[in-house]
Computed example of a mutant assay.
Amino acid sequence: MSAGTALVVGASRGLGLALATEYAHRGWEVIATVRDSRRTALHDLAEASGGGVTVENLDTTEPDQLAALRERLARSTLDLLFVNAAITRGDIPIHDVPEGVFTEVMVTNALSPMRVVEALRSLVGPTGTIGVMSSRQGSISLNTNGGQDVYRAAKSALNQLMRSYAARYADAGHTLLLICPGHVRTELGGPDAPLAIGQSIPGVADTIDRHSGEPGLRFVNYQNRTVPW
């Protein structure tokens, strides 16, 4: 894919920040969001970019903020919309998970990314790409060890919701991607994860680029390998 305009939602740190940085280094115009007004490394990236990176505020769990962002970007045409949003609240067996925690993880990891996709899809060009950061932990067939019950369930829900989205807009020309970045050393992935961010994110960007112009939904990892549902 030649350089274009990318919106990376959830880019204040970790994988989202790295993806925004990767596309900026590839010559793309990047719009990237942070959850609140606190200064982040994304602001440093924007200041050093010479106008190539723009920072927007968005808490994906707040519909009013999403509507306001949609209004601010109304004249933009995106080649890539990528949503990176996930939390975990510990490896707790499902019967011990407080209802509030269950709701928080589901809303943040499944409902809110889909709200972002629905709200901003009309900004994506006719042959553009909509991607969402998923996980192999959302694969039902790969769950042979259990653990991380709510996180797994939320990622599975996200995958199912993207399947429904793809069916609802089957006639659209957008490339739709659920991407597993691998088990990466981030705050979410933990210090013992086998992959560094620099091993994962260039592959994520390469995988997105390889599928440019291919309509329909795929569940793939950072090495462009199909992840089983």
Rank of each mutant, 00 (worst) to 15 (best):
T108F: 13
D209T: 07
R210P: 07
F82N: 06
W28C: 02
S134A: 15
E99I: 02
H25R: 15
S139E: 08
D91R: 08
E56W: 10
L120N: 05
T108V: 03
P194K: 01
G138N: 07
A68D: 15
V30R: 01
G51V: 12
N159T: 02
G52C: 02
T61R: 14
A119R: 03
D79R: 13
G52E: 08
Q148R: 11
A68E: 06
R39G: 00
A110I: 06
L45M: 07
P181D: 05
V184Y: 06
G138D: 01
Q148W: 12
G16M: 07
Q223C: 01
G128E: 01
R121E: 10
S135Q: 06
F102P: 00
V83I: 11
Q223M: 09
L176Y: 04
G50L: 10
D91Q: 13
L142W: 10
L161I: 02
A157L: 06
D209W: 08
G14C: 14
A68I: 08
R121S: 11
T226I: 14
L17I: 03
V150P: 00
D192M: 07
A166C: 05
I201E: 06
G100Q: 11
R89K: 13
G203F: 05
E118H: 15
L15T: 09
G198M: 04
V55W: 00
N159C: 01
R70V: 00
E71C: 14
R115D: 00
N143C: 03
L17Q: 05
A86C: 13
H95Y: 13
R35D: 04
A11L: 01
P228F: 13
E104A: 13
H183G: 00
T226P: 07
Q137P: 00
G182A: 00
A3W: 02
L123N: 05
